[in-house]
């Protein structure tokens, strides 16, 4: 892991996190390579969302370090991490319900804008220029790209689930991220919506050159689009590698189906 430091976007090294007596993460280490899609999978309660919250800066790990492009993130609050180019979406969509789609997406650029309070009250000069440039950029880069022109002025609260997920992705893309964290981007979606989202994620990787780290339960999608898979179970990394390798790994199969008699019987007729 140390030899290939130049093409590593995010490195997680020996991270342990516990809440009281509950160990959410134990000595978790892995690397996210630049320009690739890395997926974190694992059964419920494996610590995937805790890992994401640690990377975003909501939780402070008791030990270990997370470095983004070679620079340690420890001690920086979520807003600072946003400025460095870390963007994320949430498992249970965290859009701003009282705003339109457009305003939600505009918020993505917040950290990169400079309008101050006094400029804002007057809305002249810099504030106006910045707002109009922002609008143009969002329309041309993000809204066109994600095909959400028709809902740009709709309040978020009126949108169906699948579209909300897409708006959340749009908001993250408006941040011009260098690393995009997606927490279950297709959870609760039907086949068609999942395929759309998978296509968008691949396009983000290929057209925008953004590194992606995602947590996902939909194994079909994970195996189809990711380049590297990390498997967590009970807060520990139990396997990592290319999707096909991980799929065959006995420890992974055991984690998902159980290691007991029942698990063996369930596994045997299929032979993976």
């Amino acid at each position: 892991m140390t030899g290939a430091a130049t093409d590593v976007a995010l490195s997680v090294e020996g991270v342990s996190l516990s809440f009281g007596g509950v160990k959410a993460l134990t000595d978790v280490s892995f690397a996210v390579r630049k320009g690739l899609i890395t997926a974190v999978i694992g059964p419920n309660g494996a610590g995937k969302t805790s890992l994401f919250n640690t990377i975003s800066g909501f939780y402070r790990p008791q030990s270990g370090d997370i470095a983004f492009e070679g620079r340690s993130l420890s001690g920086s609050a979520p807003p600072e991490r946003a400025k460095l180019g870390l963007a994320r979406t949430f498992q249970n969509i965290a859009l701003f319900r009282g705003m339109t789609v457009l305003d939600n997406i505009k918020l993505g650029r917040h950290a990169h804008m400079r309008t101050g309070l006094l400029d804002a009250l007057v809305y002249h000069g810099r504030a106006r220029r910045e707002e109009i440039a922002l609008r143009a950029e969002i329309e041309e880069r993000v809204i066109d790209f994600l095909e959400i022109q028709h809902i740009r002025n709709a309040p978020v609260a009126t949108l169906p689930y699948g579209l909300r997920k897409r708006v959340e992705l749009a908001r993250a893309l408006a941040m011009r991220p260098r690393l995009l964290l997606l927490d279950e981007p297709v959870a609760g979606m039907n086949r068609e919506e999942t395929e759309d989202m998978a296509r968008f994620i691949l396009d983000v990787k290929e057209e925008w050159g953004v590194t992606i780290l995602m947590v996902e339960h939909d194994m079909g999608m994970v195996m189809d689009i990711s380049d590297h898979v990390v498997v967590l179970n009970f807060g520990q990394v139990i396997a990592e590698g290319a999707p096909a390798e991980v799929q065959m790994n006995p420890a992974v199969i055991a984690a998902y189906l159980g290691a007991g008699e029942l698990g063996r019987r369930l596994r045997s007729p299929e032979a993976a």
Binding site: F58, A77, P78, L107, E131
Partner: peptide, 30 residues
């Protein structure tokens, strides 16, 4: 002035804090 405020990033940040403070933080709003 108040109407202008909510056309810019400052006003949007206020609304973001009202609606979902966690994601406001992730977007870089202290």
């Amino acid at each position: 002035g108040a109407a202008n405020l909510f056309r810019t990033r400052v006003g949007r940040a206020f609304i973001a804090i009202r609606d979902r403070d966690i994601s406001a933080e992730v977007l870089g709003i202290p």
